[in-house]
Amino acid sequence: MTIEEGKQALVAVSAATLWASPKSAEDTDRLALGQPAAVRDWVAGMTREQRVDGLVDRALTQVLLGDEVLVSDIEDGWAHVIVTDQPSSLDERGYPGWLPVEQLETAPTETSETLPHIVSSTATSIRDEPDGEVLIPGVGLGTRLPIIDEEPYRGWARVALPGPRPAGWVRLHDVTGAPDKPEPAASGRVNALSVASQLLDVPYVWGGLSAYGVDCSSLVYLVYRQLGIRVPRDAHDQSAASTAIEPDDAKPGDLYFFARNGKSIHHVGVATEPGEDGEPMMIHAAGNYGKVVHEEFTTERAETLVGAGRVFDDE
C-alpha cells in the first residue's frame, strides 16, 4: 500500500526528523533523511554549535519507529504530517511538520497476535534473525515495539515492523512490557530519575528525540513516555499541561521551567534531590554544555527560574 493524503502512516526508521519545511533540510543533513536513517552518524558529524544553534528553526522534533502520523499533504517526495502522539499548541491534533515519504510505511502486514513493549535500553537494533544483519539501527529508548506473541528464541523475540516487511528480531533484555496505564507517583518519581539518568552525557541536539541527541523538552517527553504518561513535546506546552507548584515544593520527577525577561518559557529540567547544601538540582539537556547533565542551578538558571510543574498525581 502507498502513503496517501488524509490517511495514517507509521514511521519506518529509528528516528525520523520532522522539519519546518522540505527546504529546511540541507545537504549536511542527508544522513538523517534516508531509509534507514543514520541518526548516530548525522549527529556525530556536527559540531556542538551546529547541534545547539544550527538546527534552530529547521528541525522541529523527531518521531520514533512505529509511531503513528496523520499525512495531510504530499509534495515532491515529502509528507506534511501531524505527529498525533506529541501534543502541541501548534495544532490540536499533534505536532505538525515535514519528513521524507520514504521514511513512512503503512500498517504491518504481520497478522500474529502482538504484545506491546517499549525499548528500555538506551539503544538497540532490529535484526533479520537472532544475531543477524541489522535491519534498523539505532532504535532508541522509548520506542514502542509490538512483540509477536510466541516463545522467544535464545533471548530474542520477533517484532512486527511497519509496512510489508517480514518481522525482525530484538534482544529481549533491551525491551520491557509497555505500561498500560500511567505509573503512580510513588514508583514513578524513582523511575523518572532512572530514565533521565540513562540519558546523561547524550549530546544536545535541537529538535532531537533519540538516544543520539535530545533537547531539554524531548528529554522530559522521553522520561514520561517511558512511564506511560503522555506530555506535550515543547517546554512551554509542558508548563501549561502540568500542575503549577512552588519551586521550593518540587520533588524528584517534577519539572523546573525557565524564561528570560517575561518571554516564553525556553528551558525545562527534571528535578532531582537537592544537593548537600540544600540547593535545587536537576537533570537537563543543556545547550551551554552540549549534552545532558545533572547539576545544581547555575546563577543564570536561578535568575531565569519562573516556576515548577507537577505531572504525577500524588496521593
Rank of each mutant, 00 (worst) to 15 (best):
V81T: 03
K7D: 14
P184Q: 04
G66W: 02
K7W: 00
P162H: 13
Q8W: 08
R58A: 12
P182G: 14
R230W: 02
V52D: 08
E133N: 14
H117K: 00
G140E: 01
Q238I: 13
L64T: 14
A44E: 15
L60I: 12
L65A: 04
A250C: 11
V13F: 07
R158T: 08
A79H: 03
H284V: 03
S112F: 04
G188K: 10
L209W: 02
D174Y: 01
G188M: 09
Y289E: 12
H267L: 03
V175W: 10
S21L: 06
H267W: 00
E273S: 13
D249N: 04
R58N: 11
S242I: 02
E102F: 06
Q8E: 11
T304Q: 14
I118P: 06
D131H: 15
A286F: 05
M1I: 04
P130R: 05
D201P: 02
A16S: 14
Q8A: 14
S88L: 02
E303N: 14
T2Y: 13
L172E: 10
H173M: 09
T114Q: 10
R48S: 10
V293A: 05
K263Q: 15
A123I: 05
S197P: 07
T17S: 05
G208W: 06
R51D: 05
G168Y: 10
A160L: 15
E246M: 07
G45F: 13
E26T: 09
V52H: 03
A185F: 12
